Simulated scan of single mutants.
Amino acid sequence: MNSAGNDYGLWGLVVVNSIIFIGFAYSFFKPVNLRDWRSFGAYSAFVVALFAEMYGFPLTIYLLSGWLGSKFPGVNLFGHDAGHLWWLLTGQQGNPHFGVLHLLSFAFLFAGFTLLSKAWHVLYHAQRRHQLAKAGPYRYVRHPQYIGFVAIMFGFLLQWPTLLTLVMFPVLVLMYVRLAISEERDSEKALGDAWRSYATVTPRFIPNFAKDDGARPVSSH
């Protein structure tokens, strides 16, 4: 088993990729209050943890090196391809970047960022008009931006799973659920019957594509 070489220790790439994916999400999410910053900060921490292992130091590979070395004796565990653990563990051959899970990860990333973009566009214009956001993705779910963040993180897990991000993912999903419920309490207090009418016909997270338009409070994400 070779030791870590030039495939890691690329901290410049850690910084550049973190800035790109955090900045891209920020351009669509635009946090304005403490609750927004908490949700955005959690996503940012996930991204930094991911790229720190992808290009900086392969902590997961290091911790599992004994078991992986005995199971895959001919594999350079500290080469970049071995970091695609789903590919390695299922015994696939060839370039992992063309594997089904890797390609599927791009679909989740694209869907997540698209959802963030469309949700922010609707929310922004609704806020400017002092109206309920009820167009676009808000027709089907009450918290499309949180769903977008979860889709992005899940896409990254399909592409490059690590022990840290695997632990972080369910914790962050639970945090987003709690933030969503907290937002809804505030929205109900502020909007009363309009919010309750909207919430009655619009699911929190699982889309209902057969429903009619409802109303959407401008303060939720």
Rank of each mutant, 00 (worst) to 15 (best):
S182R: 12
G192F: 11
L116Y: 09
S182P: 06
L103N: 08
L164Q: 08
G91M: 12
I147E: 01
I181Q: 13
P73K: 10
Q92M: 06
H80W: 11
S3W: 09
L104Q: 01
L10V: 10
P217C: 06
N6H: 06
L163H: 05
G136R: 09
I181W: 12
H121F: 00
M54A: 10
F29M: 06
S70F: 04
V171E: 01
F98A: 00
G56M: 09
H80E: 07
G94V: 02
L34R: 09
D193R: 11
H125S: 12
L109N: 00
W87V: 02
L109Q: 03
L64K: 02
P137E: 05
L50A: 02
G192Q: 10
H80Q: 12
W120L: 00
L77I: 07
M54N: 04
W11H: 12
T162D: 00
Y8R: 09
D81Q: 03
L85Y: 03
P96C: 10
P207G: 10
M168Q: 10
D213A: 15
F40G: 03
T90E: 10
Q159M: 14
Q131T: 13
T90H: 13
F156V: 01
G136K: 11
F78D: 02
V122N: 02
T162K: 01
P207F: 05
L109P: 00
G5R: 05
Q127H: 12
D193F: 07
I22C: 12
R196F: 06
A107S: 08
G91A: 11
H221S: 14
S219R: 07
A107M: 13
F57P: 03
F149K: 01
Y8H: 13
Y140I: 00
P73I: 11
F98T: 02
S182E: 15
H130M: 12
A25K: 00
T165N: 04
S18P: 13
G23D: 04
F29A: 03
Y146M: 11
F205Y: 10
M175E: 14
Y8D: 12
P217H: 03
A126F: 11
L191R: 14
E188K: 05
I152R: 01
G112C: 04
L109I: 05
P31I: 04
S39G: 14
L10P: 00
A126S: 15
A135Q: 14
G83E: 04
V122P: 08
L132Q: 11
D7H: 08
V16E: 13
V14H: 10
Y43G: 01
H130Q: 14
T202I: 08
G94C: 05
F209E: 01
A199I: 05
T202H: 08
G9M: 02
G136P: 06
R196H: 13
R204T: 02
V171W: 13
P207Q: 07
W86D: 02
F106D: 11
Y140C: 00
S18D: 11
